[in-house]
Amino acid sequence: MRERNQVVYAGRKMRKARLEAAIGTQKELAEKTGIPANIISDLERGKRQMSPTWAKRIAEAVGGNWTDFID
Rank of each mutant, 00 (worst) to 15 (best):
Q49S: 08
R57W: 12
G34D: 10
K32R: 13
N65I: 05
A21K: 12
G24Y: 12
M1G: 15
D42P: 02
Q6Y: 13
Y9C: 14
D71F: 12
A37C: 04
M50E: 11
N65P: 05
W54C: 07
T53M: 13
E60N: 02
R15G: 01
V62P: 02
E60H: 00
K47D: 05
L29A: 03
A17L: 08
G11V: 01
M14K: 05
Y9F: 15
A17P: 00
I39F: 08
P52K: 09
T67W: 14
L19V: 10
R4L: 11
R45D: 07
I70H: 00
N38I: 05
R12V: 08
W54I: 02
I58F: 00
K16F: 10
G34Y: 07
A55D: 04
R2A: 11
N65S: 11
K32Y: 10
A55V: 01
V8C: 01
P52S: 09
E31K: 10
W66K: 05
K56Q: 15
P52R: 09
A30L: 06
Q49D: 11
Y9V: 15
R48L: 11
I70T: 03
A61I: 11
R4W: 14
E20N: 10
V8I: 06
G63H: 12
R4M: 14
R12F: 08
A22E: 13
E20D: 13
D71L: 14
I40G: 05
L29M: 05
I58D: 01
D71A: 15
I35S: 05
Q26R: 06
W54P: 02
D42L: 07
R15N: 07
T67I: 09
I23K: 04
T53N: 11
I40F: 08
N65C: 10
Q26L: 03
E28A: 07
